[in-house]
Amino acid sequence: MAHFIAVSKRPSSILPFLLPSWSESTVSIQQRNQSSYRRTTQRLRLKPDSSFGLSTDQIYDHIIHNPPSSAPSVYHTPTKFLPPGDVRSTLRAGTSVPNSEALPTLFKSDTTKKYHLKQSDIEEIRRLRLSDPMSWSRWKLAKRFECSPLFIAMVCEASPEKKEIQKKVLEAVQSRWGIKRRIAREDRQLRKETWGRE
């Protein structure tokens, strides 16, 4: 019923099937004629970029170099990587370097190393992880000692029981995956391997 009300609000001219058959000749059927086609092409006709045009003072006296945006070539050695005796470092000395200070970093947290942990702290990390591996995971230890989980993995290793439990948990999770999820995860891993190759 609500559907009928909604339909009846519209003007009947755009819904020709609601009208009786004798009024069919009066309904204007929308079609593309030449004027609308011309309007469409006129809108699609973009002006070329200003760098393509010839300047008035230098006609045919310069090379138009307008390359598409692309990654810089790996054969172009960065200035910092040039050895001391290379001529290119002096040649590039005058070129302006874009300010990298203003650019945002990749991650919000600061990843610079602090080197603040002492030997006693490391002993404490090892003791905690061995004594109660379920509550003291790598992430919790990293948060408490303000270091990275990678550092926790470097200084200590999980007990074999904890590894066994974790393996079973992983198997239980993976057993619930269907074929699509499994394939998608394998594809993601394969794509990740191409990062270092291309």
């Binding site: 810089p72 054969y75 172009h76 050695t77 990749l106 291309e198």
Partner: peptide, 22 residues
Amino acid sequence: LLEARSRAAVAALKGWYLYSPL
């Protein structure tokens, strides 16, 4: 972000290894 960082690191390493004298 991780892919872009990894590719940037690869480009930097290739820039080091593919140095060629003039």
